[in-house]
């Protein structure tokens, strides 16, 4: 039981729980949608796995940017906060995202997606339609802002333990704005896909 208590104190535990949930969600979702030995499905599965890994790491980078912006604002507000505390706060804020992905895993187990046929793979909108039809994906789409709000609220509450609450609120607001600006800039730069 000692190792369990030590594990619970580990700052990175929420990130690991989130990663495990994301891996389970990706496995269930991707293998459910693209099932079969046909090379078309194999290519789709490989592409989807690579995409999930990229999404996971880019999410950690965005949280890094968020933490950096929080630290910059707190330093501007003359708060002397140890950098490790910011890392710890960002890491613990992942509990909200971890709960979100595990909820997705549970709904995928209860209502797994119907596999696409090889014929449907050639249709442009078939994947989008199947994702819309699957209850789990629909709920994940609806709940994403709630998970994000949970993340921001957790980060704010944890920062408020070490700084003045108003400064913590300002830091989280500034970091949210900075992250939104970065996401918008990247989205505008990448632009729409060809043919859409």
């Amino acid at each position: 039981m000692k190792w369990l208590a030590r594990l619970a104190k580990l700052a990175l535990l929420p990130v690991l729980v989130w990663l495990a949930g994301l891996a389970a969600f990706a496995l269930l979702g991707i293998n459910g949608l693209f099932a079969g030995p046909n090379p078309v499905f194999v290519i789709a599965r490989v592409t989807a796995y690579v995409t999930v890994v990229v999404v996971a790491t880019v999410t950690t980078a965005f949280v890094g940017v968020f933490g950096l912006a929080c630290g910059a604002m707190l330093s501007w507000l003359c708060e002397s906060l140890d950098r490790r505390r910011i890392v710890d706060t960002m890491s613990r804020s992942f509990w909200s995202l971890a709960a979100y992905v595990w909820l997705g895993v549970a709904s995928l187990v209860l209502d797994p997606p119907v596999a696409l046929t090889a014929f449907e793979m050639s249709e442009a909108d078939a994947l989008e339609a199947r994702v819309r039809e699957t209850t789990a994906f629909g709920w994940m789409g609806r709940l994403r802002y709630l998970a994000l709000l949970g993340f921001l609220a957790t980060a704010g509450c944890l920062l408020a333990r070490y700084t003045r609450p108003l400064n913590a609120l300002l830091a989280v607001s500034f970091a949210s704005a900075a992250l939104a600006a970065l996401l918008t800039a990247l989205g505008l730069l990448a632009g729409p896909s060809v043919g859409h």
Binding site: V50, V58, A61, F62, G64, L186, L189, A190
Partner: peptide, 28 residues
Amino acid sequence: LRRNMTVFLILLLGVVSAGLVTIVVLLG
């Protein structure tokens, strides 16, 4: 140019993610 600049900027995000994004995006 827009697509490549997006990848270029995302690679730079490795600075705030302990190099994780850079490793994955370069491999990808």
